[in-house]
Deep mutational scan, measured.
Amino acid sequence: KYSDMIVAAIQAEKNRAGSSRQSIQKYIKSHYKVGENADSQIKLSIKRLVTTGVLKQTKGVGASGSFRLA
């Protein structure tokens, strides 16, 4: 599940300011076997996790910027 992968990526990075979408994508692609549409799936999952309150956006708008666990 992409949401689990995103949470794992943010936990692994341990950046106080949060993790960027690009760094999350890079982590997921190197640690998991994902399909061609992974980028758009990650983007959608990040937006969903922010609206449900699992992630907090520290910089930027939408799916860009930095995110950390709430």
Rank of each mutant, 00 (worst) to 15 (best):
N37Y: 06
K43N: 15
K1R: 11
A70M: 08
V34D: 02
K14I: 05
E36R: 15
S45W: 15
R68P: 03
T58A: 08
S64H: 13
Q41V: 08
K1W: 10
K33M: 11
V61N: 12
Q41P: 01
I6R: 00
L55Q: 02
S45Y: 11
T52W: 07
K29M: 09
T58N: 08
I46F: 03
Q25V: 15
T52I: 14
F67E: 04
T51G: 08
R48H: 14
H31E: 01
K33G: 07
I10D: 00
S20Q: 04
D4I: 09
G62F: 07
V61E: 10
G65N: 12
A12L: 03
S45Q: 13
K14L: 06
L44P: 01
S45N: 13
G18A: 04
K47I: 13
I46N: 00
G62Q: 05
V7G: 00
S19Y: 02
I24E: 00
N37P: 02
Q22G: 07
N37Q: 06
A12Q: 06
R21D: 07
V50Y: 03
I6P: 01
K47H: 11
I6N: 00
A38W: 06
S40Y: 14
S66V: 12
L44V: 08
H31F: 05
I46E: 02
N37D: 14
K59M: 09
Y32D: 00
G18F: 03
T58Q: 07
M5P: 00
Y2W: 15
E13Y: 09
A63S: 12
V61K: 14
K47L: 13
V50I: 08
S19G: 03
F67R: 03
D39N: 09
R16W: 11
K56R: 11
L69S: 03
M5C: 04
I10G: 00
I24R: 00
K56I: 15
G35R: 04
Q41G: 05
S19I: 12
D4Y: 13
K56E: 14
G53R: 02
G62N: 08
R16M: 11
S30C: 14
R48Y: 14
I28V: 15
G62L: 05
R16S: 13
N15R: 08
Y27T: 00
G53T: 01
Y2N: 00
K43Q: 11
K56L: 14
E13G: 10
G35F: 04
Q41M: 14
S20R: 02
F67W: 06
L69A: 04
A9W: 02
D4S: 08
R21C: 15
S64W: 08
M5T: 01
G18N: 03
G65F: 13
A9M: 02
D39C: 14
A12N: 08
K59F: 08
A12I: 03
R68M: 14
A17I: 08
A9I: 03
S30A: 12
K29W: 05
G35E: 07
I42D: 01
S40G: 06
K33T: 10
G18E: 04
Q57C: 11
R68H: 10
S40I: 12
T52Q: 13
V61T: 10
K33F: 08
G53E: 03
S20C: 04
I46W: 03
S20A: 03
K33R: 10
G18L: 03
K47D: 13
G18Q: 04
T51M: 14
G60H: 07
M5E: 00
Y32R: 02
Y27F: 08
Q57L: 08
T52H: 08
L49R: 01
S20W: 04
L44I: 12
T51S: 11
K47A: 12
T52G: 06
K1I: 10
I46Y: 01
Q57I: 12
G53F: 03
G65V: 15
S3Y: 13
T58D: 09
Y2V: 05
A12W: 07
V61F: 12
L69Y: 05
L44W: 08
I10Y: 00
I10T: 01
K59Y: 09
V54Q: 04
M5W: 12
I10C: 05
K47C: 14
T52K: 11
Q11M: 14
R21G: 09
A70R: 06
Q25D: 06
V34S: 03
I24N: 00
R21N: 06
G62P: 04
Y2C: 15
M5V: 02
K43E: 15
Y32P: 02
V50Q: 03
K56P: 00
S64A: 10
A38S: 06
I28Y: 00
A9V: 02
L69V: 08
G35A: 07
S45V: 14
A63R: 12
G62W: 07
S30Q: 11
A63K: 12
K56F: 12
D39Q: 06
Q41D: 10
L55R: 02
I28S: 02
L49E: 00
A9Q: 00
A38Y: 07
S23V: 05
K26C: 09
Y27Q: 01
Q41W: 13
R21K: 07
Q11F: 07
Y27R: 01
K59H: 08
Q57Y: 15
A17W: 14
Y27D: 01
G62C: 07
F67C: 05
I24A: 01
S19W: 04
F67Y: 13
K56D: 05
K47E: 13
L55D: 01
K47Q: 13
L44F: 06
E13V: 07
L55W: 00
I6T: 01
V7F: 06
S66P: 08
L49K: 00
A63V: 11
S64F: 09
N37L: 06
K59W: 10
G60V: 06
G53H: 03
H31D: 02
I24D: 01
V7M: 08
K26T: 08
K43C: 13
S19A: 10
A63T: 12
L69T: 04
R48M: 14
F67Q: 04
V50A: 02
A38R: 02
I28A: 00
E13A: 09
S45M: 14
K33N: 12
K59E: 07
E13L: 15
M5K: 02
A38D: 04
